[in-house]
Design a protein around this nucleic acid. Structure first.
Length: 287
DNA sequence: AACGTGTGTATAATTACGTCA
DNA sequence: GTTGACGTAATTATACACACG
């Protein structure tokens, strides 16, 4: 496996360079370097000398960070969740640039949470956009268990109130913001899926109507052909006449006209073959 | 068979903006 | 009118699977 894309980011460039300096004495292992590079928790702004401890000194268990920083971030999180007590440390899903504009999760809602450290770090960096931009965001991959629980919760209610969000986050060992984002994206996916279903349904409707239209057009052509085949002004046997129940017309002739024995301007064609559409069986269509 | 690379897909995260209390 | 919380929509970025040479 090659270097992850993030290895080419500025932040990781710093890391890789720094690690390369000391890595000479270690193994010439690009994958190891990549893994080291993938840990973008806290790179010191001090240029050449990478440090992973600066911003964490006042916070959680530094030993945890020392262990985690050399391991694939997702694996770290999985292992971390499995082995650590809930909220015993800083969330490993540092999203880097994400806390500048939205500070929703900095509210009292979850300030008591352990990831407060994360947010302290982030907020302390929020004033330094340039440095913030050097951290590429790492993407969390939810475990099957987490996904299942989220799905289960989503089935019950597609939106969460703050308490539910908080509880779910605690249950999943995620930040409330992450739960919130998951639900947002889940709603979006649901909507997209429904749109696709609707689209398919409308396509089928369109096809059906097109077929129906084609059939009717064909029938019109056949009727026209039949009409041309008959001589004009041919008297219509009364028995072949039917009355439209809705407008009380007899084959294009009103009842009053028929009663007065006036000759219709246009004679009715003989009764069409039974397989053809008879407009009088469908008054609304005929009138 | 193992490896590196390009590509497509799923989805976490971000951003912008609207609504409402 | 302002503010903060929350929602959606659009978009970006990342992780991963897979095909291919």
């Amino acid at each position: 496996m090659g270097l992850p894309d993030s290895a080419t980011s500025h932040s990781d460039l710093h890391l890789v360079l720094g690690l390369a300096l000391r890595g000479a004495a270690e193994a010439d292992d690009s994958e190891t370097a990549a893994k080291k590079g993938s840990s973008n928790f806290m790179v010191s702004s001090g240029g050449g000398e990478p440090s992973l401890t600066l911003a964490l000194s006042g916070g959680g268990d530094s030993s945890t960070w020392q262990v985690a920083k050399n391991i694939d971030v997702n694996k770290v999180c999985e292992d971390y969740y499995l082995t650590s007590s809930p909220h015993s440390g800083v969330s490993c899903f540092s999203s880097g640039s994400g806390r500048v504009k939205r500070e929703r999760d900095l509210s009292s809602e979850d300030l008591a949470e352990p990831e407060a450290v994360d947010r302290v770090i982030s907020s302390s960096r929020a004033s330094d956009e340039d440095e913030d931009a050097t951290n590429s965001r790492k993407k969390l991959r939810l475990t099957k268990e987490q996904s299942a629980l989220l799905e289960e919760s989503f089935k019950q209610h597609s939106t969460l109130n703050p308490k539910q969000k908080q509880a779910l986050a605690r249950q999943l060992n995620l930040r409330p913001r992450q739960v919130e984002v998951w639900f947002q994206n889940r709603r979006a996916r649901t909507k997209l899926k429904q749109t696709e279903v609707d689209c398919e349904f409308l396509k089928k409707c369109c096809e059906t109507l097109t077929d129906e239209n084609r059939r009717l057009q064909k029938e019109v052509q056949e009727l026209k052909a039949l009409k041309l085949a008959q001589p004009l002004y041919m008297p219509m046997p009364a028995a072949t006449l039917t009355m439209c129940p809705s407008c009380e017309r007899l084959g294009g002739v009103s009842v009053s006209d028929a009663a007065s024995n006036k000759t219709p301007l246009i004679s009715m064609a003989p009764k069409p073959p039974h397989h053809l559409y008879n407009p009088f069986t469908n008054p609304s269509a005929a009138c």
